[in-house]
């Protein structure tokens, strides 16, 4: 059972999907719910931030890597083995192993990417390059 709440899902945000999106590799896995965590992506003037719903983990379970224009977040926990033995009367969510990738735009200041884990949410802040912030572009009307 998987439900997405695309609250702000407008035609505009769908257009932007190609900008920061998931890769096909994310969908290859034994358990779809397990391997593909939900994500929020926010943008401000100075940065982008990604929030990943990653409940029940600890900081050391995560691995965040940047390679080329890809940001890959994965998590692995030993807790899953214990969980499997329990008798679930009802199961609406899962936690444990996952992996999700995002394509980064070129305007990201890669050296200053920061991450934090709080209240079950992994937050990654991707600052925009300074020149992107200050450079005001005037578009000429022809």
């Amino acid at each position: 059972m998987k439900k997405y709440n695309f609250e702000n899902s407008s035609s505009l945000s769908q257009l932007l999907d190609g900008f920061v999106n998931s890769t096909i590799g994310d969908f290859i896995g034994s358990d779809f719910i397990n391997s593909h965590p939900r994500a929020n992506v926010m943008e401000s003037k100075t940065s982008f931030s990604i929030q990943l719903a990653a409940p029940g983990l600890s900081k050391s379970d995560f691995k965040i890597t940047m390679e080329g224009d890809q940001l890959k977040v994965s998590a692995k926990t030993k807790m899953d083995e214990v969980k499997e033995k329990e008798k679930f009367t009802r199961r609406e969510f899962n936690y444990g192993e996952f992996s999700r990738s995002f394509n980064l735009p070129e305007s990201i200041d890669r050296k200053n990417v920061k991450a934090g884990y709080k209240e079950g949410i992994l937050s990654i802040t991707l600052p925009k390059l300074a020149e992107e912030n200050t450079q005001e572009r005037n578009i000429e009307i022809k």
């Binding site: 695309f6 899902s9 900008f19 994500a39 943008e43 401000s44």
Partner: peptide, 12 residues
Amino acid sequence: DTKYRRHEFHSG
């Protein structure tokens, strides 16, 4: 007041 590019879960 957040501008979401993508919104798949509620975070508080």
